[in-house]
């Protein structure tokens, strides 16, 4: 079929929820009366698995770890367990919340991250 054969004048394929246009006016006027509000998109999105940006995470974690080890006074370093003289546990919490602070630390803007993640 070509576009010239398609009749675009007769029927709109789109429907709206019942009462949508009737309530639209009051919804808009309410928002106008409350300045500073922004539209929240109703689509729910989920972030891609973290492994997409793991290289950034790895570098950031290594940098921070190095700074922590070099910068902290001796008494702040993890102490060796009395039960295991040779075992040193270092735990890293790479939660999403900490990732944001890592990005800030490395002065990575969102655009750079997005560009990398979408390569």
């Amino acid at each position: 079929m070509s576009l010239s054969e398609y009749n675009n004048n007769q029927h709109s394929p789109f429907k709206v929820p019942e009462g949508y246009f009737e309530s639209l006016e009051s919804n808009v006027m309410k928002r106008i009366a409350s300045p500073g509000t922004t539209v929240q998109t109703t689509r729910k999105t989920s972030v891609k698995p973290l492994w997409h940006v793991l290289p950034f995470v790895g570098v950031a974690a290594a940098v921070i770890l190095a700074l922590v080890i070099v910068g902290l006074p001796p008494e702040s370093l993890p102490s060796v367990s009395e039960n295991s003289a040779t075992e040193i546990k270092i735990t890293q919490d790479i939660s999403d919340r900490n990732i944001e602070s890592v990005y800030d630390y490395l002065v990575l803007d969102n655009e750079t991250i997005y560009d990398y993640a979408t390569e």
Binding site: F14, V28, V39, T41, T42, R43
Partner: peptide
């Protein structure tokens, strides 16, 4: 609404854009 809906396809998105337009 119809002009916007053609572009964004989904009702929820069209509603967002339409309200933004009026704001």
């Amino acid at each position: 609404y119809m002009q916007i809906r053609r572009l964004v396809t989904w009702h929820d998105d069209a509603n967002d854009v339409l309200q933004n337009t009026f704001i």
